[in-house]
Amino acid sequence: MIRTMIVDDASLVRLALVDILDDAPGILVAAQAADGAEAVARAGTQHLDVVLMDVRMPRMDGIETTARLLALPDPPKVVMLTTFDLDQYVYDALAAGAVGFLLKDSDPAEIIRAVEVVADGQAMLHPSAARRLIEHCHHTTRGRTSAARSRLDRLTPRETDVLALLAEGTSNAEIAAGLGMRESTVKAHVSRILAALEVGNRVQAALYARDAGLTG
């Protein structure tokens, strides 16, 4: 069972998300919070697998809340929710360690899939907005590009191929199909890529790929 928490200052949004997730087998809405401070307090008292997090909230916004949740001993995966597809705040949260990004008007099936995917250790970025978000907000410097390329030099050619597809938001299954390998092999490659780049999740690895010029 995937234990989730919904964090949003709009009660109607929380209720809508509860209705969506309650209909999904294998997902339990274990907690709700109206702002970041309440979310941190609730997360500290129970185990949570995935948090659906609003970006703009009173008292404590989604960025600070994400940082505090990720500092917990057994942190949940964080999926950011926003009404804006080019939101600097969302980018900051992803760079800080959130592993998902969805628009609030996403289809219910996509929201359910996001919870399932990130609980399985993968990233979930809204397909129509993820690339625009990174290109709009992530301006690389010459030094950052050099550092990213240096880290990518640690990868084997096959791992570089996997990273290039991963950076486009491709799932493990899609990478496996595209490169003609088993999904378990892809998972092993991804684990080695994260270790070599010294990052904690696929989103941060994708940003390194972008910095190094591996993706367009």
Rank of each mutant, 00 (worst) to 15 (best):
V90D: 05
V90Y: 03
V90L: 00
V90N: 01
Y91D: 04
Y91R: 00
A93W: 06
L94Y: 09
L94I: 11
L94D: 07
A95N: 11
A95V: 04
G97C: 12
A98N: 00
A98W: 10
V99P: 00
V99E: 08
V99A: 09
V99G: 09
G100C: 09
F101R: 00
L103G: 12
L103T: 14
L103K: 11
L103A: 08
K104A: 00
K104Y: 05
K104P: 00
K104M: 09
K104G: 01
D105V: 13
D105R: 10
D105W: 00
D107R: 11
P108Y: 01
P108K: 03
A109C: 05
A109L: 11
A109R: 08
I111P: 02
I111S: 08
I111W: 04
I112E: 08
I112C: 05
I112K: 07
I112W: 05
I112T: 15
R113D: 15
R113I: 05
R113H: 15
R113S: 15
A114M: 07
A114T: 02
V115I: 09
E116N: 11
E116F: 00
E116W: 02
V117M: 02
V117I: 11
V117N: 04
V117A: 02
V118N: 11
V118R: 09
V118D: 10
A119L: 12
A119K: 12
A119C: 13
G121P: 03
G121A: 04
Q122G: 05
Q122T: 02
Q122D: 11
Q122N: 09
A123F: 13
A123Q: 13
A123G: 08
A123C: 13
A123M: 15
M124D: 03
L125Q: 03
L125K: 01
H126Y: 07
H126V: 04
H126L: 01
H126I: 01
P127N: 11
P127L: 08
S128Q: 15
S128P: 11
A129L: 12
A129R: 13
A130C: 13
A130F: 12
R131M: 14
R132N: 15
R132L: 15
L133V: 12
L133P: 03
L133Q: 04
L133W: 10
L133S: 04
I134M: 03
I134Y: 02
I134S: 04
E135M: 13
